[in-house]
Amino acid sequence: DESNKPILLPNESQSFERSVQLLDQIPSYDTHKIAVLYVGEGQSNSELAILSNEHGSYRYTEFLTGLGRLIELKDCQPDKVYLGGLDVCGEDGQFTYCWHDDIMQAVFHIATLMPTKDVDKHRCDKKRHLGNDFVSIVYNDSGEDFKLGTIKGQFNFVHVIVTPLDYECNLVSLQCRKDMEGLVDTSVAKIVSDRNLPFVARQMALHANMASQVHHSRSNPTDIYPSKWIARLRHIKRLRQRICEEAAYSNPSLPLVHPPSHSKAPAQTPAEPTPGYEVGQRKRLISSVEDFTE
């Protein structure tokens, strides 16, 4: 099969070098950035008060330690540790928490760990991170309901609301924008112990962030949302095809390698009803078989 044979790379090609550099910018793992907010007593309706908090309760602090690993920003190499735009020179604080497994990295933009500057009256330095995160974990210690939209931002799609209760338990629920209701189930609340709260809140936030990324990708319907490693695979396959075309153009005697095509017509299947918005969006999480067989 010609399409699977190794090909020689061009010795000097600026377009090839640019493509390789672009490939280096696509990590081999999925990345997520999640905002974390603490809401104190009497702050449920005040964005400024929430963003001005420099610490929270003892249970909130224990919750943070379970979310991930504490890292010092100045020691991080952005090409190895995903920071979601946090500055490593102290502009966004000294520490944050991050978490990773074999296929993804997540960083938490924690408002109480970011510096509260006197010259920044409206807390814009914090909002440029927190307001651009799709998902926020809100530790609501106010005793009042927290409403979506209290923290203004164009991309605040989903809130994971943590409400501490007695007996070391917590109520965990989801809020989302109306255009996200087909992807996020907000109907079920959970009672979770303090011990298990970081794991549950983190998983709910990661799932909500993946759904938000799919939702946000609708602005470019021709580019369905893939995982990062599938995006790398697609980029490599496009690069291979372009090299083959350039080689055939410079030397017409060489065969032009095309991806294999299936001449056999697909079997006719009964027509199915058109899937609704929710089903269609969830299918976009699934990769096409052509990603692996071309």
Rank of each mutant, 00 (worst) to 15 (best):
Arg284Trp: 06
Arg202Glu: 01
Cys76Gln: 11
Ser28Trp: 15
Val119Asn: 12
Val20Lys: 12
Arg242Phe: 14
Ser261His: 11
Ile26Ala: 05
Asp194Val: 00
Cys76Arg: 11
Trp229Thr: 11
Phe16Gln: 07
Tyr60Ala: 01
Asn132Phe: 07
Thr293Asp: 10
Asp92Pro: 08
Gln105Ile: 08
Tyr97Thr: 04
Pro260Ala: 12
Val257Asn: 14
Val188Met: 12
Leu197Asn: 00
Leu183Gly: 02
Gly56Glu: 01
Val36Gln: 00
Val135Glu: 00
Val257Cys: 10
Cys76Ile: 11
Gln175Pro: 00
Ile191Ser: 02
Asp79Cys: 04
Gln21Val: 05
Asp101Ala: 01
Arg69Gln: 14
Gly66Ala: 02
Gln94Leu: 15
Pro259Met: 13
Arg202Ile: 03
Glu144Arg: 05
His215Cys: 08
Ala205Phe: 00
Ser187Gln: 11
Pro164His: 00
Ala35Val: 02
Phe95Ser: 04
Thr186Lys: 06
Ser261Cys: 10
Ser46Pro: 02
Tyr60Pro: 01
Asp185His: 04
Gly66Trp: 00
His258Ser: 14
Asn209Trp: 01
Ser212Lys: 01
Ala271Glu: 12
Gln241Glu: 14
Lys228His: 09
Ser261Leu: 08
Arg284Glu: 15
Gln213Asp: 02
Phe134Leu: 04
Leu285Asn: 14
Leu148His: 13
Glu17Tyr: 07
Thr222Tyr: 06
Met180Pro: 01
Ile224Thr: 12
Val158Lys: 01
His262Trp: 11
Gln43Gly: 01
Gly280Asn: 08
Arg238His: 15
Gly93Cys: 12
Lys127Leu: 15
Gly153Asp: 08
Leu130Ser: 05
His109Gly: 02
Cys176Ile: 05
Lys152Ala: 13
Asn140Leu: 00
His235Trp: 08
Ser288Tyr: 06
Asp79Thr: 10
Glu72Gly: 07
His159Asn: 15
Val119Leu: 08
Leu8Lys: 06
Pro78Gly: 11
Trp229Glu: 14
Gly93Ser: 13
Leu171Lys: 04
Met204Asp: 03
Gly131Asp: 15
Leu70Cys: 06
Ser288Val: 07
Gly182Pro: 13
Phe157Trp: 15
Ser19Ile: 13
Arg128Met: 06
Ser46Thr: 03
Pro198Asn: 00
Val135Ala: 02
Ser44Asp: 03
Glu12Ala: 05
Asp75Val: 05
Leu67Asp: 00
Met180Gln: 02
Asn170Tyr: 01
Lys117Val: 12
Ile50Met: 03
Lys190Ala: 15
Phe199Gly: 03
Gly68Thr: 05
Leu86Ala: 15
Gly84Val: 03
Ser19Met: 15
Thr116His: 08
Thr61Ser: 11
Ser212Arg: 01
Ala189His: 12
Met180Asn: 01
His109Tyr: 05
Asn53Glu: 02
Arg202Ala: 13
Leu206Arg: 01
Ser28Asp: 15
Leu8Asn: 12
Gly85Pro: 14
Thr31Ala: 03
Ser173Thr: 08
Glu278Arg: 08
His159Lys: 02
Val214Tyr: 14
Val200Trp: 04
Pro198Ile: 00
Asn156Arg: 02
Leu197Gln: 00
Tyr249Gln: 09
Glu41Cys: 05
Val36Asp: 00
Ile50Glu: 02
Lys127Glu: 06
Ser136Asp: 01
Asp185Lys: 03
Arg18Val: 05
His100Tyr: 10
Gly153Leu: 08
Ser13His: 11
Leu51Arg: 03
Ala247His: 13
Tyr249His: 06
Ile26Asp: 05
Tyr277Trp: 12
Leu165Tyr: 04
Asp118Thr: 14
Asn196Leu: 01
Lys147Leu: 08
Ala111Cys: 05
Ser187Asp: 08
Asp141Val: 01
Pro260Met: 10
Asp1Ala: 07
Thr274Met: 10
